[in-house]
Design a protein around this nucleic acid. Structure first.
Length: 507
RNA sequence: GCAGGAGUAGCUCAGCUGGUAGAGCUCCACGUUGCCAACGUGGUUGUCGCGGGUUCGAAUCCCGUCUCCUGCUCCA
């Protein structure tokens, strides 16, 4: 019997997750043999199972188990006008300026500058349109006798090329530290049709939500759903991120799990509260994330997105700190109103009971699939120090996945590779697979090595078929988290395992 | 985007001031063992991230480039 001591304080690093992901086939870098493509990742055989389980979990919870939510699967390419209506065309094309001195970045079109009309020996003092005071303070110090009232204010984009070198940035002390404005197109552009013409430009959607909004009427009328009800969707979205980050946390191609819940205008506070609670509980109970590694991050009113009335993020304690895993937003009626204006189509809803007509408001829950995968990996990762009888210390790496998301639920081993054990254990595996369990089978190496392999990919249960099994028709179930073993009859294995998985959350 | 660090076997990494690549683990086969990384024997694996330059000769020096990590910044 070995003693084990868990070390929950040992912080997992992103490097450990990246290394394990590659070693065991969870996640590979995209196009690796060509040197990789920035911030793009491929899911391997175990990774795709984990990801699929996470998506299925979400879909079952948000759609199939509820009467008031239905699903859609919208196309990635949409009419370009959709992104004008949604505000993305305007919001995603900001010209930006960097300051080499202060390391700040500014919206070029929001920058102004104080310029002296005649004194070319003086610098130009740039400032943001809502905050002129730092520039004014600098003028007092540096203007060599010229008073503030002598300066004229002009937009920075109107300043001549040759004067750019004299500009002092809003947070800089030296002139000439601002870069030239650069246009960032955060939406991926492509063309419909084989011939590239301006008229054929379309975008890869930067969020899945718009497919839901533009289909609001279609879905409502075909399903005869009554407000309040929700429309859910899982799908890919694309953003040409300037800064990618932290493995699969922020990539340019990613997958979202979104639900837009349509409600009467007066009920938005109530439903906003409701969905925040539902979504937080989901991570704890369905995915098995410890509550103390999850936290709310409300958006302060001045930082809200252009569409949002209120918003809060669920954040998870990743190796790189607290980061967003899901956003719950009160979008108001912004989206339906915008699409109604731009398309000219009526997007309002008539309540059959009150006969009132209104544009529904929307509560959005928007979660990142890839971020959830990373969260699952980070949260599950444990290194446990084992001390053997010979006092040799060794580290056991265990992914403590909730069985709902574990890529493999049960692995079956014959104790020896003799046919008399291999054949019946193989039959047992097939039987379990037939009962809907995700199974694997391993005959190679020692039994201990096989347990450790399964630990490392997070398989919650292993079953060993030994020489006694032939006589007593029983096998050993070995538990990943406790390493305990129990002897059970073969014809009850499937039922017992499925019960353990079902009751896992309550355990 | 800025600053710093790093890219050598599937993984972790060594390889000094230039002399045509190495360890541990993993993996595979056979034998042995028979419930927690066992042992023995044998075996597979590298365009030293990529491109160019210097040199008789480059993993090593120089230039460029790509990718990853960390911090800052940004984020619908």
């Amino acid at each position: 019997m070995k003693e084990s001591c868990s070390m929950p304080d040992t912080k997992v690093t992103l490097d450990q997750i990246v290394s394990l992901s590659k070693r065991r086939g969870f996640i590979f870098q995209s196009s690796e043999i060509y040197g990789g493509l920035g911030a793009c990742w491929d899911y391997g055989p175990l990774g795709v199972e984990l990801k699929q389980n996470i998506k299925n979990c979400w879909w079952d919870f948000m759609v199939r188990s509820r009467e008031d939510v239905v699903g859609i699967d919208g196309s990635i390419l949409m009419h370009p006008e959709v992104w004008v209506a949604s505000g993305h065309v305007a919001g995603f094309h900001d010209p930006l300026v960097d300051c080499r001195e202060s390391k700040n970045r500014y919206r070029f079109d929001q920058m102004l500058a104080y310029r002296h009309p005649s004194r070319h020996d003086l610098p130009l003092f740039a400032f943001m349109e809502d905050n002129p005071s730092p520039a004014e303070a600098k003028i007092k110090k540096m203007a060599k006798g010229a008073g503030l009232e002598e300066f004229e204010v002009i937009p920075l984009p109107n300043i001549a090329e040759e004067d750019q070198a004299r500009v002092i940035g809003p947070d800089a002390t030296q002139p000439g530290t601002l870069t030239k404005p650069r246009q960032f197109n955060l939406m991926f552009k492509t063309h419909v049709g084989a011939v590239e013409e301006t008229a054929s430009v379309v975008y890869l959607r930067p969020e899945t939500a718009q497919a839901i909004f533009v289909n609001f009427k279609n879905v409502q009328q075909t399903t005869r759903m009554k407000v309040p009800f929700g429309i859910a969707q899982i799908g890919k979205a694309f953003r040409n991120e300037i800064v990618t980050k932290a493995f699969i946390f922020r990539s340019r191609e990613f997958e979202q799990m979104e639900m837009q819940f349509f409600i009467p205008p007066s009920e938005d506070e109530k439903w906003y509260e409701y969905w925040r609670e539902v979504r937080m509980n989901y991570y704890v109970n369905q995915i098995g994330i410890p509550r103390d590694t999850l936290q709310w991050a409300p958006h302060p009113p001045d930082k809200l997105a252009h569409y949002a009335k209120a918003a809060a993020d669920i954040t998870f304690l990743y190796p790189m700190g607290w980061q967003e895993i899901e956003g719950i937003h009160n979008r108001g009626d912004f989206d339906l109103t915008q699409h109604s204006k731009h398309s000219g189509k009526d997007m309002s809803y008539r309540d059959p009971e009150t006969n009132q007509t209104f544009t529904p408001k929307v509560i959005e829950t928007s979660a990142g699939v890839d971020r959830s995968v990373l969260m699952a990996l980070c949260s599950a990762y444990h290194e446990i120090e084992e001390v053997g009888e010979d006092h040799k210390r060794e580290t056991r790496t265990v992914l403590k996945f909730h069985p709902n998301i574990a890529p493999v639920s049960v692995s079956v081993f014959p104790l020896s590779k003799k046919d008399e054990l291999v054949d019946p254990s193989k039959r047992l595996e097939n039987e379990l697979r037939g009962d809907g369990l995700r199974t694997s089978f391993d005959v190679t190496g020692s039994i201990g090595k096989r347990y450790r392999r399964q630990d490392e990919i997070g398989t919650p249960f292993c079953i060993t078929y030994d020489f006694d099994s032939i006589k007593d028709q029983s096998v050993t179930i070995r538990h990943r988290d406790t390493m305990e073993q129990e002897r059970v009859a073969i014809d009850r294995v499937s039922e017992i395992l499925r019960r353990k998985i079902r009751e896992w959350s309550q355990a």
